[in-house]
Design a binder for these strands. Structure first.
Lengths: 142, 142
DNA sequence: GTCAGTGCAAACCCTTTGCAGAAAG
DNA sequence: CTTTCTGCAAAGGGTTTGCACTGAC
């Protein structure tokens, strides 16, 4: 069973089910924020999520955006991407893949997983277990 | 030139030369901060650099630490490592290598470059050039 | 003397928190 | 009705900035 992640707008039932699957109570604001995150197949910062939500006429506060994004990330619904000391990006794609980060535009772009994958991890420091691997290719224009 | 009682591993002449090579005017504070950075083979945050400098009896202000670390990084003397949204780490090793980041301890550990290297970059987004590649393996204790 | 570097405190910006009111079950 | 969520504003914490002072050449 191959499930492809669609980039089109998801119905609120689908969104609600997705929240349920991750143990997240689907309130109105959470559904709206999930809608923003999953319909844009882009990487958004908290601020951008708030702007986008506001632009769509959703009524959400800044605190709720931050709290909700943190919750979604903790529950595994989305992934935090740390590439810029000034802001955290949120990636609706939780599958294994890496990123280009454009230092000039601040844009974060998915890297085709087939193009670069770390297949064998090196020995980890004693007493630790791997939690995740991030590869960031920093690029500049021209 | 008066020698101060310190634990520095590089002579101030060596440090001064290193700053010169990177086009950095070697002032007293810059030499002291370079001393802290290069004698500790660790990854330090700005705050840790300040603490360490103070502990050694160096007289540097917080603003100068931040300005100087930024300058060193811009000039290629040290490398910024972005792994934690709450602080930037500075790595005196500018050679190609990657990192383990311990989420429990906040510790950043060098990964032996022979253990993991990205030898062929995937095609970059159109109109961009690679600036650097960061691989972060996030680990937890136990 | 001139220009760059430094120190201090205040400003900044993103993010988190405290708490009262609203909503979900 | 009880518990959880939301919104507002204020606090928090790392980093940057404005400006006067100091130091290097």
């Amino acid at each position: 069973m191959v499930k492809t992640v669609s980039t089109q707008m998801l119905s609120s039932e689908e969104l609600g089910q997705r929240l349920d699957e991750h143990g997240i109570l689907p309130t109105q604001q959470r559904l709206q924020l999930a809608d923003v995150l999953f319909s844009a197949h882009r990487h958004l910062s908290a601020d951008q999520v708030l702007s986008e939500a506001t632009a769509r006429g959703y009524s959400v506060s800044k605190a709720t955006v931050y709290n909700t994004l943190g919750l979604f990330a903790r529950k595994g619904l989305i992934r935090e991407v740390i590439v810029d000391p000034n802001r955290v990006f949120y990636d609706p794609n939780t599958g294994p893949h890496h990123h280009f980060y454009n230092l000039d535009t601040g844009e974060l772009i998915d890297l085709d997983p087939e193009r670069l994958s770390i297949d064998s991890l090196p020995p980890l420091p004693a007493g630790t277990v791997a939690e995740g691997v991030d590869v960031i290719i920093r690029v500049r224009n021209q």
